[in-house]
Amino acid sequence: MPVKIAIASGKGGTGKTTVAVNLFHFIRQFRTNHVLLVDCDVEEPNDLIFFPDATPVDEKDANQLIPEINTDKCTFCRRCVEYCEFNAIVVIPLVQFAEINPGLCHSCGACLVACRDEAITEKPYSIGKIRSHTIDGKAHLLVGSLKIGSAMQTLLIKTLKKQPVNEAEIILYDSPPGTSCPVVTTTADADYVILVTEPTPFGLNDLKLTVDLLRELGKSFGVIVNKAGLGNRDLYDYLDKENIEIIGEIPFNKAYASVYARGALLKQIPKEIEDLYQNIIIEIIEKTGHYA
């Protein structure tokens, strides 16, 4: 079984992608080539920006099943309307009208069970793309990209996580921001979660929400403080009080931010950053019991 590590944050823009991309890079360098990076931030996937030389391997549609009502068979009994908890079905017997609103449908299948006239069938409806890339045939990147206008980001993350993992020994999940269902889906099967935060009031507030969530989910986790040196000590006081381990600190550096900005994160790596990730990887490997 591969070790699964999720990188999450609560607040956006704290450096999840930076950490995920660097971990991927340094795990290959120090540990194993059999590593898979999964970009679960399907609304705004950015991991590929940092690997311009990655070779595309596969691309496919991810689908949602949307039911359709055949009004020739429908008896307008409205049983499906009663079964649908999402108000996605409109049936007006008087004018023999029956339709499903794909924007509200959760594809739960309840209407199919409800219908006694075989009037409902499901058709696949694209919610986005799943793309697979490789660096050297061993390390892979898996990217989900939500179709613009689709509200089914959680389903896409679930589909993404069911893809084959290509003999990966370590899997990294780059999580979307926030604390709602897409984050739960991303971290659900992770052996360890790295929370990336910044020492500002916004960073701390959103970190607290995420810590509450991970504790409710029963996950083990540690924190990387990014942009250290900005802000104040409140974050450190909180981590200390809550007994949360800091597994790394990345100092704020405007020049480094500029390197990230143009997507050249892995082209110019300062020595101290390399050392930092080497330590983080050793720590995580110890925590997850991966001795490959």
Partner: peptide, 28 residues
């Protein structure tokens, strides 16, 4: 909210103007 998924769709529906705050990174 960040992103383009369901909370953003809910935030866009019926609003009059969007003020985009963009940072100068490839990701941004």
């Amino acid at each position: 909210p960040p992103g383009i998924g369901c909370p953003v769709i809910s935030a866009l529906t019926g609003t009059h103007k969007v003020l985009m705050v963009i940072e100068p990174t490839k990701s941004g």
